[in-house]
Design a protein around this nucleic acid. Structure first.
Lengths: 282, 282
DNA sequence: GAGTGGTCTAGACCACTCC
DNA sequence: GAGTGGTCTAGACCACTCC
């Protein structure tokens, strides 16, 4: 891993949790008990945060620090409840939200697992281009260019870097059933993706996010995409084997890891002759 | 309303709820009680459905039937728990899911409200075209054509009608700050949208989904969209005041009401000169 | 102060997986 | 049979709204 995160001791009771909700731990009996024994704090905290949100933040830190790695089983709800000295219900509510955000996956009877990009389930969460006919599948990659350069101003701004900071630049073509369909350029922070080379990319089979997760300790957890229509210029037309002037979808995507930190800028051109961008509005 | 839904009597105890989960109502005391008094059913139901899902279905029926109308307050959790003879926690879990699906909106201290398209919050759930600069706002509509016709085969298929069934056809241009940006065609089932005329559309201010909800008892609750890039033909170019051949986004959207019933087909062409289609991948 | 949704606990039992 | 997440209950108290 390229970065270090101050690790919390998860094994000691977290004495800094603030229970500004319901009955204090251990101070309650099943029959109605006077709660006046517990002195209430001076005033309701202005930065009120429910216990389960605090637990969620602690679990997220363990995910981010790599204490529990992608694909691994995390401790059971009962065990986490014991560690954090809260009820199972509170842990459950924290994990519910993490599952809704796709950070973990629950499997009844087995346990809760850290999400990973190394599974079919995850592949189409970020790739929205679907074939008009036939079964969706993952495209083949051909890398056109991989190099390190200094971030241009617009790239630096979107990645929250300083203009001129080192970035890794990647250009590739993606093919479905041998038909070139996507041309895209990527920019990644040089510091985080030190050692990312064309060789590493060519060796690796499967989505790049799997490689980023396994080899660079960086998990993409959400992305913001802006889409426009453009015409193919000559260079792109050649790569996609279409006529210059053919209309293409243009996507600009910024992907974020933990803490809403942007760690990838991707600009793609999609041929929509035999594919379409699928979106469900819920 | 153009259709009739068999209404459930919500005021009588629903005797057909199946509690195939935990302790039977009223058969449990706080101290460990023998549960053998409750005879277990012959075998675990093959179509196992948790109680809260059954409650959710009952609430959804009340929403669909118009017993609780868009914008209105629904009964409190405590009251619903009493009606359905379940705990507040079970009602809460049912409503949690309905809120996640945007069918209802919870407001702490006030109650739970039926969602409506008559509020700023809802407007941008289906309109994803955002200005490159400035604050998002709702476009002005100019109706080009409104007529009734027989559904072509492709339209009938997507709306789950028979080819030749009556549909309402609408063509309009939408303008942001006076600049024509969207041309779209809509097809609606004739039976449901009886009486929808150019006059009604012109009188109405605000998003069409608000009109559909208030005047035709049909609420759009989700949609599936497919997006492609195309070139403007001469007719569209004139309406959008762009050069013929200009690249445009083409969206085909099918919208669904309760029960996953398709009730609108919309085909739109978007100019992305000063706007972009915004999508967040979570 | 009364009513609403929101949080938290403790405890029981179920569905499912793995041995 | 033991362990996991999933459901359900009852009850307490909190944050927020409205009067």
């Amino acid at each position: 891993m390229a970065f270090v995160v101050k690790s919390l001791s998860m094994n000691s009771a977290p004495s800094n949790l603030t229970n500004n909700g319901a009955p204090a731990s251990g101070a309650v009996s099943p029959t109605a008990a006077p709660s006046s024994a517990v002195p209430s704090p001076a005033a309701p905290s202005p930065t009120f945060s429910p216990l389960y949100q605090q637990i969620k933040a602690l679990i997220t830190q363990s995910l981010q620090s790599g204490e529990w790695k992608p694909g691994e089983l995390i401790p059971s709800e009962v065990e986490l409840a014991g560690r954090f000295k809260v009820s199972q219900g509170t842990v459950r509510k924290a994990i519910d939200e993490l599952a809704a955000e796709n950070l973990v996956v629950r499997k009844q009877g087995k346990g809760t697992f850290v999400s990973t990009h190394h599974e079919a389930r995850a592949h189409f969460r970020f790739l929205r281009l679907m074939p008009d006919e036939g079964v969706p599948h993952y495209p083949e990659s051909r890398f056109v260019e991989v190099k390190r350069l200094r971030a241009p101003a617009d790239v630096a701004r979107l990645l929250e870097l300083k203009s001129g900071d080192a970035v890794v630049y990647i250009k590739r073509v993606q093919l479905f059933d041998g038909v070139p369909t996507i041309v895209e350029e990527l920019w990644l922070p040089g510091l985080v993706f030190k050692g990312l080379t064309a060789e590493r990319l060519n060796e690796y089979k499967g989505p790049m996010y799997g490689l980023f997760e396994s080899e660079f300790g960086t998990r993409m957890i959400r992305a913001a995409e802006k889409i426009r229509a453009v015409c193919a210029d000559e260079g792109v037309a050649e790569l996609l084997r279409v006529d210059p002037g053919t209309p293409l979808l243009m996507s600009e995507r910024v992907s974020f890891t933990y803490g809403d930190k942007p760690v990838e800028l991707r600009r793609g051109l999609y041929s929509t002759e035999r594919h379409h961008y699928q979106n469900d509005l819920n």
